[in-house]
Design a protein around this nucleic acid. Structure first.
Length: 504
RNA sequence: GGCGCUAUCGUCUAGGGGUUAGGACGUGAGAUUCUCAAUCUUAAAACCCGGGUUCGAUUCCCGGUAGCGCUACCA
């Protein structure tokens, strides 16, 4: 008995595109539930929509799920005792099961053509009736059915929906009930012999002994048909948990229109998987008490509960994802962030394809300096512009800088600084500190009046990283053989003074 | 149109028949720093509307409204 009650869940995506955050959350909740309960997590590929399904999407799907840190015990790639796990490989099961249903008179052949159905629908609409299937083939004479089938007439197979209301229990929504009249007899096998989603999903879930169906609530309205199918099949109805929809800021279903929506998008932006997992977990679920925000996957497994899932739709909040991402960037070992950041620099043309140890080490320090301040790692090369792009003319033209540079003591500060740097290279951070102190006493400038002009001279902006980290990075960077030369302090000072001289 | 689901700060949410309705993101202010996107402190900010039940409803019930979903030989 105990072994029979083992929890089995499944994530059943269709390989018709990139893994979307909504589906990723569904996958995550299934995984959390299975891992917490010591159950079995199944990955099943729903590729009955032959026209839209593509094999390459299946590979991507698996990559994306793995990147998130999810895994499964049975699936197309790992096998399992209920194989195959790809619906296109299970067609025989669907056909024979459908035949059985017809024989048991739980389902029937329907000879209506698409045109017939469309006409009926239009008429129903015109007469203000509900456009549901009339059931006209439901009680055809068996002999006639036989004859027409032998004559080779195309026929779909429809399930008989029972006359009584269909009730089921949903863990997040409670008891749900549908009147029989609101559910028309659904087609389970198309006339071309290809089964329909609402049918295969039940056959597979039943066959694979799925105990808890955790999926998006866009399937809630389909559930009565599926429950009727379980009953027709004489199989136990699983528990359901329908997850709310994820919406965009305009309260419409989150889609590409809203920008990044696929897992691959987020990965490509430099969002860490644990940040995304943490964020997705918090979308529609909250721990008991609700006060905690950051969870490692292990902690999520411990705390997770289907019963605490919120039934209402949730708007995807990029800002909060950014906050979590910053949090995890700071938490991560630096080497890991270096490795993830490297391709962004390579792509921006700042880092060679195969950097030597010295260059890699220098870039690591650049990342250490800038990463705590970015929302996502893709912003790094742009932030690193203070090192790579030195444009004194633009710095002088900038109105905000101009204001600072117009200060009374600015001229003397810049002059004296330039004089003290002279031809020195490299400038040690200690020496820099001394120079600043000397400037303070010699010019009387202090604080902002002292530091801002110097920073504008060096990086073109009055705000930026601390000098004792910045200076060594400039000096050492200038020595490296990089695709984009980093100017040394000496070069920057000379360049700035020249541009300033020209201007006045 | 029919059916279904949903409704607490701008957003994610906690809570729940009597509470100063709590936390987080974001926003404002302050602190710190030469500066800053970091950090710390702090402030503003919410129970959709109408009935009913009740001594009392934001909480329970009903209705309305709005949003979303389903209503396919899509998944």
């Amino acid at each position: 008995m105990a072994s029979e009650s083992k929890i089995r869940v499944r994530f059943a995506p269709s390989p018709t595109g990139q893994l979307h955050v909504g589906n990723a959350r569904t996958a995550l909740f299934n995984w959390l539930f299975a891992r917490q309960k010591g159950g079995v997590n199944v990955l099943r590929i729903e590729d009955t929509d032959l026209e839209r399904s593509e094999a390459r999407y299946e590979t991507q799907l698996i990559d994306d799920l793995k990147w998130l840190g999810l895994d499964w015990d049975e699936g197309p790639d790992v096998g399992g005792s209920y194989a195959p796990y790809r619906q296109s490989d299970r067609l025989e099961i669907y056909r024979s099961t459908a035949d059985r249903l017809v024989q048991a008179q739980k389902a029937y052949y329907c000879f209506c053509t698409l045109e017939d159905l469309e006409r009926d629908r239009q008429q129903a609409l015109a007469e203000n009736r509900q456009p549901i299937y009339s059931g006209k083939c439901r009680n055809l004479d068996p002999a006639e059915v036989q004859r027409r089938r032998h004559a080779g007439e195309a026929a779909a197979i429809r399930l008989k929906i029972p006359e009584h209301p269909i009730k089921f229990h949903d863990i997040v929504h409670g008891d749900v009930q549908f009147a029989s009249e609101s559910v028309s007899d659904p087609i389970i096998m198309r006339s071309n012999g290809v089964p329909v989603y609402n049918y295969v999903v039940v056959v597979d879930d039943a066959e694979m002994k799925i105990t808890h169906v955790i999926r998006g609530d866009d399937h809630l309205s389909n559930t009565p048909k599926q429950v009727a199918l379980y009953e027709a099949l004489g199989l136990p109805v699983p528990e359901f948990a329908h997850l709310s929809t994820i919406l965009g800021p305009d309260r419409e279903r989150l889609s590409k229109r809203h920008g990044a929506t696929s897992i691959a998008n987020f990965r490509d932006m430099g969002v860490l998987p644990e940040a995304l997992v943490n964020y997705l977990a918090l979308l529609g679920w909250a721990p008991s008490g609700g006060a905690r925000e950051t969870f490692t996957p292990k902690e999520l497994i411990k705390e997770f509960s289907l019963k605490r899932i919120t039934p209402s739709p949730a708007i995807f909040d990029m800002e909060k994802l950014h906050w979590l991402n910053r949090h995890y960037i700071k938490q991560s070992p630096p080497e890991r962030i270096h490795a993830i950041a490297q391709p962004f620099f390579t792509k921006a043309g700042l880092l060679p394809e195969n950097p030597d140890a010295e260059i890699a080490q220098w870039f690591g320090r650049v990342v250490d300096l800038l990463a705590p301040y970015v929302d996502k790692l893709e912003q790094l090369p742009q932030r690193a512009a203070i090192l790579f792009h030195f444009d004194p003319a633009a710095a002088l033209a900038n109105p905000e800088n101009a204001e600072v540079l117009a200060g009374e003591k600015t001229g003397p500060v810049l002059q004296a600084f330039a004089a003290k740097i002279g031809n020195q290279f490299p400038v040690a951070p200690e020496r820099f500190k001394e120079i600043m102190n000397e400037l303070k006493t010699e010019t009387g400038a202090k604080g902002k009046d002292l530091f801002h002009p110097v920073r504008i001279m060096l990086i073109g902006s009055h705000s930026g990283p601390e000098f004792d980290k910045l200076i060594p990075l400039l000096e050492e960077g200038s020595r490296l053989n990089l695709p984009e030369h980093v100017k040394s302090v000496r070069e920057r000072v000379a360049g700035f003074m020249a541009a300033r001289g020209q201007r006045s």
